Every structure is written in structure tokens, then in C-alpha cells.
Computed example of a mutant assay.
Amino acid sequence: MPRGFTTLLVERRPDRVHVQLNRPAVRNAIDQTMIDELHLVCADLEQDPRILILSGTNGVFASGADIAQLRERRAEDALNGINSTLFGRIARLPMPVIAAIDGWALGGGAELAYAADFRIASDTARLGNPETALGIIPAAGALWRLAALVGEPVAKEIILAGRILNAAEALAVHLVTEVHEPAALLAAAHALADRIAQQDPLATQLAKEVFHVPATEHPLADNLAQARLFESEQKFTRMTAFLERKKR
């Protein structure tokens, strides 16, 4: 993975990658350069699967898409799905993705968080989709991911009526699963990553993959994944260790 990023701060560990969105002068607004650099991160994690932690800098996750660039985009840009293509790629990464949300996560920033497998927040977090106030729609996932996460009534309040959720409200509707003091947020994200890393990586990858297949593909997809795992060395090693612990 290239190390000369201009919009991201990247920390690599053997089992995870921590990516911080880093455009503090514009509250981490997502511009084309950040999109391109996140694609490079995805390419690396597709080749070498690891947990991904996404966070912001300076008390902000991402204030949204870069409005200066967004204003100049035309129909062809919309049809190219610039943000939606990236967020879909992040959602499909082999290993789980954790969004650690501090401060504002609005518009495209919120949609990036919705694409993660886990969302945890600081008590300063604010999440919402104000796109219709700018004459557009949230077309990078909110119109379908958000309803799946929080239900149609709350999703419509956010998308159609401009409601911004604070951390307590986001926790109450299960949009986030944990709330922490800002100073403790990244430690909590790494603690969650530690728990994920204790599982068998292949089983975790297949569980995530099958979790997201269409309903019509169950139970065949489950059985095919389980058949692969039933022949894996880790299955025998981990189950033998479990039985040995029970004997003690």
C-alpha cells in the first residue's frame, strides 16, 4: 500500500489497519483525492484481509462530501457512482470494518459509517443526512442502508426531514452499539478489533460474506461455507483446544 497519502493517516498492524480521515481544514470532507486513496486501502485489504478501523481527526469523523467539488458535478458524475462505488467496496471488504465516530458524521461521512459493519461513537457524535437541503439526495447508501439499520420511520426523519441524531439517540436506535468519552473512543475501537481478531479469520470472513447474501441464497450459501470450514485445519485445532480445556 502506498505510504504517501495526503488525505489519510494510516497505521498498519498485522491483524488490522487504522485509517484516519485527515483533511482538518475542511472537517475531513470527502473529496476525490480521499476517494482515490481509500480505494488504494481497499485494494490492499482485498489482497491481505485485515480488520479496518475508520476514524476522523480533530474531533470530526467526516462532515460530508466536499461541497465545492460536489457543486460542480453533473449527471455523468452521478451515474458513475463516485461515492457509492467506494462505500460498496468498503462494505464488501473480507474482514469487518469498524467506524469510530467522533463529532460530525454528515452526508457522505454518515454514509461511509453506514457501510461499516460496526459503528461506535463518542458522546460528541452527530449523524445525519442533510442532502435534500442542498438540492440532492443521499445516493451513496443512506436510502437503503439506513432503513435496514434503524427502520423506515427513523430513516425517513433523517433523510426527508433533516433530523440529526446525537450519540444517545443513535445508540437508542442501534445505529451505533457503543458510546464512549472522546478520549476513549479509539481504545474502544481497538478493543473491539481485538475481540474480532481472536476469532478464526476464515470463519469470520465467510460469516460476513454469507450474512450479506440475498435471502433466496440461504441456506445453500450457509451450507457451502460450512462445508469449507468443516475441512479447515483451524476448525480441528480450535475444537480440539476447546475440548482439552473442558477436561481440566
Rank of each mutant, 00 (worst) to 15 (best):
R119L: 14
I120W: 02
A121K: 09
S122G: 13
G128T: 12
N129F: 13
N129V: 07
L134F: 14
I136H: 04
I136R: 13
I137C: 00
P138T: 00
P138I: 03
A140T: 03
A140G: 04
G141H: 03
A142S: 13
A142N: 03
L143M: 13
L143V: 11
L146H: 01
L146D: 04
V150T: 12
E152A: 09
P153Q: 09
P153K: 09
V154Q: 12
I158W: 00
I158F: 09
I158V: 15
I159F: 01
I159N: 01
I159R: 01
L160Q: 05
A161Y: 14
R163N: 04
I164L: 12
L165T: 08
N166M: 08
E169W: 09
E169D: 14
A170H: 06
L171N: 08
A172V: 07
A172G: 12
A172S: 15
A172H: 10
V173Y: 13
H174Y: 03
H174P: 00
T177W: 04
E178Q: 15
V179C: 07
V179Q: 07
V179Y: 02
E181D: 14
P182I: 11
P182C: 06
A184C: 06
L185C: 07
L185Y: 11
L186H: 11
A187Y: 06
A187N: 08
A188W: 06
A188C: 03
H190C: 09
A191N: 05
A191G: 07
L192W: 12
L192T: 13
D194K: 12
R195Y: 05
R195K: 15
R195A: 14
